[in-house]
Structure formats: structure tokens, C-alpha cells
């Protein structure tokens, strides 16, 4: 860097210049040794370091966990839109024959890939089989359930589905055309809220990580004040003095992120069983995904970046204040 002619003595005492190549290798050597010693320093005070790391890990784990949940819900929602359907509830006065006739007509509709008629008797049987209120039916003189035609649209885009729903709902026999997608739309909206919320939480906790690392380093800096002063007196540059602290930030971020990934793994394992049971209930092939390789890489990259940045910001300010006098 700026190390050009400064080390050259003008005359007298033996001149030694550190050559360009040696300078590169000494720079690398210094980085390596500083990286190792700053890691050793962290390990030398295991309890204090563990406390800091635990706080960092929690701050990093919470948003990671939330993102993993968001991804899972997205996955789950995506798995559903493969078979949206429209339920056509027919008017009570529509006869069984007319319903039968109508379902045959609908089969010819170009926008539909499947049609299923649940006539009133079948509806009653199903109701009796699956509902706890089956005995309520006996209170009615005649079957109170409407006939239902389930249709499977070919085009799954939301616009096409809504158009089709509109078209079918105005048929004279149809009392109500219900798009089963609606709950999915609601889920999508909830998902948006959840995602936004996760961004906010992530931002706040990233700030917390910066502050934790910054504060930890400020204290380390204070405890090594004498060392900083002496090294500055014998010619250490700001960058040289700062380096070990940046590495400390790096290690804190890295170890914090690794611990966080363990926490996320444990959290996912804890919710796995109930989620699987829920998926079975919906007869979905959905299975819970963990952080994954990509999530893990992102978590570690963010941890390291925040650790380094926290160290950078805090040492930049405080190192200037520590001057020999």
C-alpha cells in the first residue's frame, strides 16, 4: 500500500527494505497468524465467549427459523394450486335428472378437464359418514342437502379460474359457484404479511447482531488499550492494529451462525411431527424442509458479514480515540 519509500534510510545505519514479494508473503503470514490468535483469544475465555455467541446465535436463528417457515408455507401453497376446483351448489328445486343432465353438458365444456356429480343422496351418505351431526339429518322431513357438481378447470391461472367461476355462477341451476382456491388466496395474503414481518424481524435482529459484536469488541479494545498504544508507538498502522479485531468479529459471526444453524435444525425437528400429521390430514405429500444448503450458506454469509461489519464500525471509531500521549 503506502509502504513505498518510507522504509528506506537515507544514509547511515544499514538499510533494509522489505521486498515486494516478501511484503506479500509477510502480509499473508500476518493475516493467518492474526486469524489464528484471535480465534485462540475467543477460545481462551470460553464462558464469556459462549455467552456472546449464544446471544448472537439466538439473534441469527430467529430470522432463519422464520424464513424456513415462510419457505415451507410457500412450498405447501405451491403444492396445492395443481388441482384447483370449483364447486357448483345447485338450487334445491333442481331435479336429480336435471343435475345429471347438467353434469353431462359440463363435460363438453372446453375449459373443464373433469366433472363429478355428487347428487343429493350421495351427499347425504357422505354427510352421514363423515359428520358428527349426521343424526341432525333425521330431524328434516326430506333431504336438505343440495346437489353439488365439482368441476376441474384446465387453466389454473387465477384470472382464468375467476372468469370460469363467474361464468358458471350465472347458470340458472347454480345457486353458488365456489372456487376452492379462495382459502389459498387467503393463505397467499397471510404469507405476504408473514414475509413482510419476517423482513422486519430480520432487519431488527441484524442490527442487534451489529450492536452485540460492536459492544463486545469495544470492551476487548478497552482491555487491550496498553497493547494498542505500544504497537502504535513502534509504528503500527491503524489497519495493523485493527486487523485482530476484524478477525474477532469474523469468528464471532461465523461461530454464531453455525450455532444458529444448529438451533434452527433443533427447532425444525421439534415441529416436524405435528406438521407431518397435519399434512397427512390434508392427504398432502408435503414434507417439512430444513434450512437446506442454500439457507445454511446464506445464514453463514450473513453471520460473517455482520460480525465483520460490527467489528469494522466499532473499531473504526474507538481506535482513533486510543492514541499514545
Amino acid at each position: 500500500m503506502a509502504e513505498k519509500s518510507n522504509t528506506v534510510a537515507r544514509r547511515g545505519a544499514q538499510v533494509h527494505r522489505v521486498s515486494q514479494r516478501n511484503r506479500l508473503s509477510s502480509w499473508l503470514r500476518h493475516h493467518l497468524s492474526v486469524a489464528l490468535t484471535s480465534l485462540q483469544r475467543i477460545l481462551r475465555t470460553p464462558l464469556a465467549s459462549f455467552m456472546t455467541l449464544a446471544v448472537l446465535a439466538i439473534a441469527l436463528a430467529l430470522p432463519s427459523f422464520m424464513w424456513t417457515v415462510v419457505h415451507n408455507v410457500q412450498q405447501f401453497a405451491a403444492g396445492w394450486d395443481t388441482h384447483p376446483r370449483i364447486s357448483l351448489y345447485l338450487h334445491q328445486q333442481v331435479s336429480d335428472e336435471r343435475a345429471e343432465q347438467m353434469s353431462l353438458e359440463l363435460m363438453l365444456h372446453p375449459g373443464l378437464s373433469g366433472v363429478e356429480l355428487i347428487d343429493r343422496d350421495k351427499g347425504l351418505q357422505d354427510f352421514a359418514r363423515y359428520s358428527e351431526f349426521a343424526n341432525l339429518i333425521s330431524l328434516f322431513e326430506r333431504n336438505p342437502l343440495p346437489a353439488v357438481i365439482l368441476v376441474l378447470p384446465t387453466d389454473h391461472t387465477l384470472l382464468a379460474l375467476q372468469g370460469l367461476q363467474q361464468e358458471l355462477s350465472v347458470l340458472p341451476e347454480v345457486q353458488e359457484a365456489q372456487l376452492d382456491l379462495e382459502w389459498l388466496q387467503r393463505l397467499g395474503a397471510y404469507l405476504n404479511v408473514l414475509e413482510r414481518f419476517t423482513w422486519v424481524v430480520s432487519g431488527l435482529l441484524a442490527l442487534a447482531v451489529l450492536l452485540i459484536v460492536g459492544n463486545t469488541l469495544r470492551m476487548t479494545l478497552e482491555s487491550r488499550r496498553d497493547e494498542i498504544i505500544v504497537t502504535k508507538l513502534v509504528g503500527a498502522t491503524d489497519a495493523w492494529v485493527r486487523r485482530p479485531f476484524l478477525y474477532t468479529g469474523f469468528w464471532l459471526g461465523l461461530c454464531g451462525a453455525i450455532l444458529a444453524s444448529v438451533l434452527v435444525f433443533l427447532a425444525m425437528e421439534m415441529i416436524r411431527a405435528p406438521v407431518d400429521r397435519l399434512a397427512q390430514l390434508y392427504m398432502s405429500s408435503f414434507s417439512l424442509q430444513g434450512l437446506g444448503a442454500q439457507g445454511l450458506t446464506t445464514l453463514i454469509a450473513i453471520g460473517v458479514a455482520l460480525g465483520w461489519l460490527g467489528a469494522f464500525v466499532s473499531t473504526g471509531r474507538h481506535l482513533r480515540e486510543i492514541e499514545p500521549s
Binding site: 503506502a2 509502504e3 518510507n6 522504509t7 534510510a9 502504535k232 508507538l233 513502534v234 509504528g235 503500527a236 498502522t237 491503524d238 495493523w240
Partner: peptide, 10 residues
């Protein structure tokens, strides 16, 4: 300021 270190090394 950034030259102080080089000054002290001499």
C-alpha cells in the same frame, strides 16, 4: 495522520 505510523518506524 495515516503517515504517522511510517514516520515512527524510522
Amino acid at each position: 495522520r495515516h503517515q504517522i505510523a511510517w514516520h515512527r518506524r524510522r
